[in-house]
Structures are given as C-alpha cells and as structure tokens.
C-alpha cells in the first residue's frame, strides 16, 4: 500500500485552503467566516499530515494535533464572541461591528 505521490496530497490541501479563503473573503455572516477558517485550518493540517507521511515521521501528526487544539480553543472563544455580538448588535453581519476603526 501507500504509493500516493505527495504532491497530490499537497495540491488537495491547496485547493481546500483556497476554497476556505474565498469563503472568508466573500461572506459577511460571521458564523460562515468561522466555518471557513475551520476549513483553512483543516487544509493546513492536511499539508502537515502529507509531509509527515513522506518522511514517515510522527511530527506531522503531532502538528495536526496542535492545530486541532488551537482550532478548538479558537472556536470556543470565537463562538462566545459571536454570541455577544449577536446579543449587542442583533445581527451577524461583520460590517456592522465596525466601530473599532482608526
């Protein structure tokens, strides 16, 4: 088994990452933006896994675990913020939360 060329894996990671990025750029709904960020993180994790499997090392998977941890923390804080924003502004539109400007 395991005869997958790694550039295929990296290209898959790249495609997923681009999709997530497009989504972040086009969405105004903050929950969708959060979901898109999750997609991008996941793609980054995939790139690590691919690299790890090329060298047959555990480090790739460990990096993935750290990304996972970070994503979990980010989602919890992000969701709390979303709740507050919705509570205050009665909308999920990020453009409405634009008071912090220079």
């Amino acid at each position: 088994m395991n005869a997958i060329p790694i550039e295929y894996g990296l290209i898959l990671a790249g495609i997923l990452f681009m999709l997530g990025m497009v989504s972040v750029l086009i969405r105004r709904n903050i929950i969708f933006m959060l979901i898109s960020v999750e997609i991008m993180l996941n793609a980054a994790g995939l790139a690590f896994i691919v690299a790890g499997s090329k060298w047959t090392q555990a480090d790739g998977q460990i990096m993935f675990i750290f990304i996972l941890t970070m994503a979990a923390a980010e989602v919890s804080v992000g969701l709390a913020l979303i709740l507050q924003i919705y509570h205050q502004l009665k909308t999920l539109d990020t453009d409405a939360a634009n008071r912090m400007k220079g």
Binding site: N2, G14, M18, G52, S53, K54, T56
Partner: peptide, 22 residues
C-alpha cells in the same frame, strides 16, 4: 494564489511517496 502554489509544487521537486503508516 492557487496557480502559484501549483507552480511551486510541480516545479519544486516535491516528490516521493508515502510509504509506511505511522
């Protein structure tokens, strides 16, 4: 961006196969 990544990946000599499960 995607085109650039593809270029880097394909021209940069990222070769090799995943051989063994970890």
């Amino acid at each position: 961006l995607m085109a650039e990544i593809l270029y880097v990946l394909l021209a940069g000599g990222f070769e090799g196969n995943a051989t063994q499960a970890v």
